[in-house]
Design a protein around this nucleic acid. Sequence first.
DNA 1: GACCTCAACTGGAATCATTCCAGTTTACGG
DNA 2: CCGTAAACTGGAATGATTCCAGTTGAGGTC
Lengths: 143, 143
Amino acid sequence: MTSTAPTAATPEDLLRGVGLRVTAPRVAALRAVGDSQHATADDVLSSVRAELGTVSVQAVYDVLHALTDADLLRRIEPAGHPARYERRTGDNHHHVVCRECGAIGDVDCSVGHAPCLTPSDDRGFVVETAEVTYWGLCPDCSA
Amino acid sequence: MTSTAPTAATPEDLLRGVGLRVTAPRVAALRAVGDSQHATADDVLSSVRAELGTVSVQAVYDVLHALTDADLLRRIEPAGHPARYERRTGDNHHHVVCRECGAIGDVDCSVGHAPCLTPSDDRGFVVETAEVTYWGLCPDCSA
DNA sequence: GACCTCAACTGGAATCATTCCAGTTTACGG
DNA sequence: CCGTAAACTGGAATGATTCCAGTTGAGGTC
Protein backbone atom coordinates (compact mmCIF):
# COMPACT_ATOMS: atom_id res chain seq x y z
CA MET A 1 0.00 0.00 0.00
CA THR A 2 1.60 3.18 -1.16
CA SER A 3 0.73 6.85 -0.82
CA THR A 4 -2.83 7.38 -2.04
CA ALA A 5 -2.09 10.52 -4.00
CA PRO A 6 -4.35 11.77 -6.77
CA THR A 7 -1.77 10.18 -9.02
CA ALA A 8 -2.58 6.61 -7.97
CA ALA A 9 -1.23 5.47 -11.32
CA THR A 10 0.30 2.03 -11.59
CA PRO A 11 3.98 1.75 -12.46
CA GLU A 12 2.90 0.49 -15.88
CA ASP A 13 0.79 3.58 -16.49
CA LEU A 14 3.54 5.87 -15.31
CA LEU A 15 6.01 4.29 -17.71
CA ARG A 16 3.64 4.46 -20.65
CA GLY A 17 2.78 8.01 -19.69
CA VAL A 18 6.32 9.16 -20.36
CA GLY A 19 6.77 6.98 -23.42
CA LEU A 20 9.01 4.34 -21.90
CA ARG A 21 8.72 0.63 -22.64
CA VAL A 22 7.13 -1.41 -19.90
CA THR A 23 9.65 -3.98 -18.70
CA ALA A 24 9.79 -6.09 -15.56
CA PRO A 25 12.95 -4.46 -14.17
CA ARG A 26 11.46 -0.99 -14.61
CA VAL A 27 8.19 -1.85 -12.96
CA ALA A 28 9.98 -3.54 -10.08
CA ALA A 29 12.45 -0.69 -9.65
CA LEU A 30 9.73 1.92 -9.65
CA ARG A 31 7.86 -0.02 -6.99
CA ALA A 32 11.03 -0.62 -4.96
CA VAL A 33 11.84 3.09 -4.79
CA GLY A 34 8.25 3.87 -3.87
CA ASP A 35 8.22 1.37 -1.03
CA SER A 36 11.47 2.33 0.67
CA GLN A 37 12.04 6.07 0.82
CA HIS A 38 15.41 7.18 -0.55
CA ALA A 39 16.71 3.82 -1.74
CA THR A 40 20.24 3.40 -3.06
CA ALA A 41 20.98 1.67 -6.36
CA ASP A 42 22.05 -1.31 -4.31
CA ASP A 43 18.79 -1.33 -2.35
CA VAL A 44 16.89 -1.28 -5.61
CA LEU A 45 19.04 -4.07 -7.00
CA SER A 46 18.23 -6.23 -3.99
CA SER A 47 14.49 -5.54 -4.15
CA VAL A 48 14.34 -6.15 -7.87
CA ARG A 49 16.29 -9.38 -7.60
CA ALA A 50 14.10 -10.56 -4.74
CA GLU A 51 11.11 -10.04 -6.99
CA LEU A 52 12.42 -11.15 -10.37
CA GLY A 53 15.38 -13.42 -9.75
CA THR A 54 18.42 -12.64 -11.88
CA VAL A 55 18.80 -9.00 -12.87
CA SER A 56 22.09 -7.46 -13.88
CA VAL A 57 23.69 -4.57 -12.06
CA GLN A 58 23.79 -2.67 -15.30
CA ALA A 59 20.05 -3.12 -15.83
CA VAL A 60 19.31 -1.40 -12.53
CA TYR A 61 21.61 1.51 -13.29
CA ASP A 62 20.09 1.81 -16.77
CA VAL A 63 16.60 1.75 -15.34
CA LEU A 64 17.37 4.31 -12.66
CA HIS A 65 18.87 6.61 -15.26
CA ALA A 66 15.94 6.23 -17.61
CA LEU A 67 13.43 6.87 -14.85
CA THR A 68 15.38 9.84 -13.57
CA ASP A 69 15.65 11.34 -17.05
CA ALA A 70 11.90 10.84 -17.49
CA ASP A 71 11.28 12.62 -14.18
CA LEU A 72 9.62 9.61 -12.62
CA LEU A 73 12.44 9.55 -10.09
CA ARG A 74 14.70 12.12 -8.54
CA ARG A 75 18.32 11.36 -7.83
CA ILE A 76 19.96 12.65 -4.64
CA GLU A 77 23.74 12.54 -4.47
CA PRO A 78 25.02 13.40 -1.01
CA ALA A 79 28.79 13.96 -0.86
CA GLY A 80 30.55 10.87 0.42
CA HIS A 81 27.53 8.59 0.11
CA PRO A 82 26.11 6.54 -2.76
CA ALA A 83 23.27 8.14 -4.71
CA ARG A 84 19.70 7.68 -3.52
CA TYR A 85 16.41 7.83 -5.38
CA GLU A 86 12.94 9.06 -4.49
CA ARG A 87 9.51 9.25 -6.08
CA ARG A 88 8.74 12.81 -5.04
CA THR A 89 9.59 14.85 -8.10
CA GLY A 90 8.55 18.26 -9.36
CA ASP A 91 8.20 20.02 -6.02
CA ASN A 92 11.54 21.51 -5.09
CA HIS A 93 11.92 20.07 -1.65
CA HIS A 94 15.22 19.61 0.11
CA HIS A 95 16.97 17.01 2.27
CA VAL A 96 18.56 16.41 5.65
CA VAL A 97 21.48 14.01 5.37
CA CYS A 98 23.08 12.11 8.24
CA ARG A 99 26.86 12.56 8.29
CA GLU A 100 27.24 9.13 9.88
CA CYS A 101 25.04 6.68 8.05
CA GLY A 102 23.81 8.68 5.07
CA ALA A 103 20.16 8.43 6.09
CA ILE A 104 17.99 11.01 4.39
CA GLY A 105 14.85 12.92 5.35
CA ASP A 106 12.65 15.19 3.25
CA VAL A 107 12.40 18.85 4.16
CA ASP A 108 9.92 21.18 2.55
CA CYS A 109 11.23 24.57 1.59
CA SER A 110 10.95 26.46 4.85
CA VAL A 111 10.51 30.05 3.79
CA GLY A 112 7.66 29.01 1.55
CA HIS A 113 8.81 30.30 -1.79
CA ALA A 114 12.14 28.92 -2.88
CA PRO A 115 14.31 31.30 -0.89
CA CYS A 116 17.90 30.99 -2.05
CA LEU A 117 16.84 30.22 -5.55
CA THR A 118 18.55 33.17 -7.16
CA PRO A 119 22.22 33.76 -6.37
CA SER A 120 23.32 37.30 -5.51
CA ASP A 121 25.94 37.12 -8.25
CA ASP A 122 25.71 34.34 -10.82
CA ARG A 123 29.36 34.75 -11.85
CA GLY A 124 28.36 34.54 -15.48
CA PHE A 125 26.92 31.06 -14.99
CA VAL A 126 23.55 30.13 -16.46
CA VAL A 127 21.90 28.89 -13.28
CA GLU A 128 19.25 26.20 -13.69
CA THR A 129 18.53 24.90 -10.21
CA ALA A 130 19.28 25.55 -6.58
CA GLU A 131 19.73 22.75 -4.12
CA VAL A 132 19.69 22.93 -0.35
CA THR A 133 21.22 20.20 1.78
CA TYR A 134 21.11 20.11 5.57
CA TRP A 135 23.87 18.11 7.23
CA GLY A 136 23.62 16.62 10.68
CA LEU A 137 22.94 13.42 12.57
CA CYS A 138 19.87 11.24 12.26
CA PRO A 139 17.93 10.18 15.36
CA ASP A 140 19.73 6.81 15.47
CA CYS A 141 23.26 8.18 15.05
CA SER A 142 22.87 11.05 17.54
CA ALA A 143 22.62 8.52 20.38
CA MET B 1 61.62 38.13 10.41
CA THR B 2 59.22 40.85 9.37
CA SER B 3 56.07 40.35 11.35
CA THR B 4 53.52 41.60 8.85
CA ALA B 5 49.83 42.30 9.23
CA PRO B 6 47.81 39.47 10.81
CA THR B 7 45.84 39.12 7.57
CA ALA B 8 48.94 38.43 5.46
CA ALA B 9 49.90 35.30 7.40
CA THR B 10 52.36 32.98 5.71
CA PRO B 11 51.45 29.33 5.19
CA GLU B 12 53.97 28.51 7.90
CA ASP B 13 52.26 30.84 10.37
CA LEU B 14 48.85 29.49 9.49
CA LEU B 15 50.02 25.93 10.15
CA ARG B 16 51.65 26.81 13.46
CA GLY B 17 48.59 28.82 14.38
CA VAL B 18 46.43 25.71 14.38
CA GLY B 19 49.09 23.52 15.96
CA LEU B 20 50.08 21.56 12.86
CA ARG B 21 53.66 20.63 12.02
CA VAL B 22 55.20 22.71 9.27
CA THR B 23 56.16 20.38 6.42
CA ALA B 24 57.03 21.09 2.81
CA PRO B 25 53.97 19.28 1.36
CA ARG B 26 51.64 21.23 3.64
CA VAL B 27 53.14 24.59 2.85
CA ALA B 28 53.10 23.84 -0.87
CA ALA B 29 49.52 22.52 -0.78
CA LEU B 30 48.28 25.54 1.13
CA ARG B 31 49.89 27.83 -1.39
CA ALA B 32 48.60 25.77 -4.33
CA VAL B 33 45.00 26.01 -3.16
CA GLY B 34 45.41 29.72 -2.54
CA ASP B 35 46.77 30.35 -6.02
CA SER B 36 44.17 28.47 -8.04
CA GLN B 37 40.64 28.90 -6.76
CA HIS B 38 38.79 25.64 -6.14
CA ALA B 39 41.61 23.21 -6.92
CA THR B 40 41.01 19.46 -7.04
CA ALA B 41 43.22 17.00 -5.16
CA ASP B 42 44.81 16.24 -8.50
CA ASP B 43 45.51 19.92 -9.20
CA VAL B 44 47.14 20.20 -5.81
CA LEU B 45 49.18 17.07 -6.45
CA SER B 46 50.51 18.56 -9.69
CA SER B 47 51.37 21.91 -8.14
CA VAL B 48 53.06 20.33 -5.17
CA ARG B 49 55.07 17.97 -7.34
CA ALA B 50 56.09 20.82 -9.64
CA GLU B 51 57.45 22.60 -6.59
CA LEU B 52 58.92 19.76 -4.56
CA GLY B 53 59.59 16.91 -6.93
CA THR B 54 58.38 13.53 -5.68
CA VAL B 55 55.35 13.64 -3.42
CA SER B 56 53.03 10.68 -2.88
CA VAL B 57 49.35 10.74 -3.71
CA GLN B 58 48.60 9.76 -0.16
CA ALA B 59 50.59 12.68 1.22
CA VAL B 60 48.39 15.13 -0.66
CA TYR B 61 45.18 13.49 0.54
CA ASP B 62 46.53 13.41 4.09
CA VAL B 63 47.50 17.06 3.88
CA LEU B 64 44.16 18.13 2.43
CA HIS B 65 42.35 16.25 5.18
CA ALA B 66 44.50 17.73 7.92
CA LEU B 67 44.08 21.26 6.57
CA THR B 68 40.34 20.78 6.14
CA ASP B 69 39.98 19.43 9.68
CA ALA B 70 41.96 22.41 10.96
CA ASP B 71 39.66 24.78 9.07
CA LEU B 72 42.46 26.18 6.97
CA LEU B 73 40.69 24.77 3.93
CA ARG B 74 37.11 24.04 3.01
CA ARG B 75 36.18 21.00 0.97
CA ILE B 76 33.47 21.22 -1.68
CA GLU B 77 32.09 17.95 -3.02
CA PRO B 78 29.82 18.50 -6.00
CA ALA B 79 27.86 15.40 -7.04
CA GLY B 80 29.50 13.68 -9.98
CA HIS B 81 32.73 15.66 -9.75
CA PRO B 82 35.91 15.21 -7.73
CA ALA B 83 36.20 17.25 -4.54
CA ARG B 84 37.61 20.76 -4.66
CA TYR B 85 39.28 22.88 -2.02
CA GLU B 86 39.26 26.57 -1.22
CA ARG B 87 40.88 28.96 1.25
CA ARG B 88 37.73 30.91 2.11
CA THR B 89 36.53 29.34 5.32
CA GLY B 90 34.33 30.51 8.13
CA ASP B 91 31.90 32.64 6.15
CA ASN B 92 29.06 30.47 4.97
CA HIS B 93 29.14 31.27 1.30
CA HIS B 94 27.77 29.00 -1.39
CA HIS B 95 28.73 27.77 -4.86
CA VAL B 96 27.64 27.68 -8.48
CA VAL B 97 28.72 24.45 -10.13
CA CYS B 98 28.92 23.81 -13.86
CA ARG B 99 27.08 20.65 -14.85
CA GLU B 100 29.45 20.16 -17.77
CA CYS B 101 32.98 20.74 -16.59
CA GLY B 102 32.60 21.03 -12.82
CA ALA B 103 33.91 24.60 -12.71
CA ILE B 104 32.97 26.38 -9.50
CA GLY B 105 32.20 29.97 -8.57
CA ASP B 106 31.66 31.54 -5.16
CA VAL B 107 28.27 33.00 -4.31
CA ASP B 108 27.65 35.04 -1.22
CA CYS B 109 24.49 34.27 0.65
CA SER B 110 21.92 36.23 -1.32
CA VAL B 111 19.24 37.05 1.20
CA GLY B 112 21.86 38.40 3.54
CA HIS B 113 21.21 36.31 6.61
CA ALA B 114 21.56 32.59 5.97
CA PRO B 115 18.08 32.08 4.53
CA CYS B 116 17.30 28.39 4.41
CA LEU B 117 19.46 27.69 7.40
CA THR B 118 16.72 26.19 9.52
CA PRO B 119 14.60 23.44 8.04
CA SER B 120 10.85 23.65 8.49
CA ASP B 121 10.85 20.16 9.97
CA ASP B 122 14.14 18.65 11.06
CA ARG B 123 12.72 15.10 11.04
CA GLY B 124 14.42 14.40 14.35
CA PHE B 125 17.84 15.07 12.86
CA VAL B 126 20.37 17.20 14.73
CA VAL B 127 21.11 19.70 11.99
CA GLU B 128 24.59 21.21 11.98
CA THR B 129 24.96 23.00 8.68
CA ALA B 130 23.01 24.04 5.62
CA GLU B 131 24.57 24.03 2.21
CA VAL B 132 23.29 25.69 -0.94
CA THR B 133 24.47 24.62 -4.38
CA TYR B 134 23.44 26.29 -7.61
CA TRP B 135 23.67 24.10 -10.71
CA GLY B 136 24.03 25.43 -14.21
CA LEU B 137 26.54 26.08 -16.97
CA CYS B 138 29.69 28.13 -16.71
CA PRO B 139 30.41 30.91 -19.23
CA ASP B 140 32.65 28.59 -21.28
CA CYS B 141 30.24 25.63 -21.41
CA SER B 142 27.14 27.69 -22.21
CA ALA B 143 28.59 28.50 -25.63
C1' DG C 1 73.61 19.97 19.00
C1' DA C 2 72.44 15.03 19.42
C1' DC C 3 68.42 12.17 20.65
C1' DC C 4 63.75 10.45 20.75
C1' DT C 5 59.18 9.85 19.59
C1' DC C 6 55.08 10.24 17.21
C1' DA C 7 53.19 12.49 13.41
C1' DA C 8 53.91 12.65 8.58
C1' DC C 9 55.28 10.59 4.30
C1' DT C 10 56.19 6.58 0.72
C1' DG C 11 54.46 3.32 -2.57
C1' DG C 12 51.62 -0.12 -3.78
C1' DA C 13 47.40 -2.62 -3.38
C1' DA C 14 42.44 -2.35 -2.41
C1' DT C 15 37.75 -0.38 -2.30
C1' DC C 16 33.41 1.08 -4.02
C1' DA C 17 30.04 3.23 -6.85
C1' DT C 18 29.44 3.61 -11.32
C1' DT C 19 30.28 3.14 -16.34
C1' DC C 20 31.93 0.98 -20.69
C1' DC C 21 31.66 -2.70 -23.88
C1' DA C 22 30.11 -6.44 -27.05
C1' DG C 23 26.80 -9.64 -27.52
C1' DT C 24 21.81 -11.37 -26.70
C1' DT C 25 16.98 -10.78 -25.74
C1' DT C 26 12.48 -8.55 -25.91
C1' DA C 27 8.68 -4.99 -26.24
C1' DC C 28 5.64 -3.34 -29.33
C1' DG C 29 4.42 -0.74 -33.93
C1' DG C 30 3.53 -2.14 -38.50
C1' DC D 1 3.78 -12.60 -36.56
C1' DC D 2 8.06 -10.02 -37.85
C1' DG D 3 11.66 -6.69 -37.68
C1' DT D 4 14.11 -3.44 -35.26
C1' DA D 5 15.55 -0.38 -31.97
C1' DA D 6 15.56 -0.36 -27.16
C1' DA D 7 16.62 -3.17 -23.04
C1' DC D 8 19.14 -6.44 -20.71
C1' DT D 9 23.38 -9.72 -19.61
C1' DG D 10 27.89 -10.38 -17.64
C1' DG D 11 32.34 -9.22 -17.25
C1' DA D 12 36.00 -5.92 -17.40
C1' DA D 13 37.40 -1.07 -16.64
C1' DT D 14 37.37 3.46 -14.48
C1' DG D 15 38.54 7.04 -11.21
C1' DA D 16 38.54 9.19 -6.86
C1' DT D 17 39.76 7.97 -2.62
C1' DT D 18 41.36 4.99 1.21
C1' DC D 19 43.89 1.19 3.57
C1' DC D 20 48.15 -0.77 4.92
C1' DA D 21 52.91 -1.68 6.54
C1' DG D 22 57.13 0.25 6.57
C1' DT D 23 60.35 4.60 6.57
C1' DT D 24 61.41 9.45 7.36
C1' DG D 25 61.67 13.74 9.74
C1' DA D 26 59.76 17.88 12.78
C1' DG D 27 60.40 19.74 16.85
C1' DG D 28 60.45 19.22 21.99
C1' DT D 29 63.97 17.48 25.52
C1' DC D 30 68.29 17.16 27.82
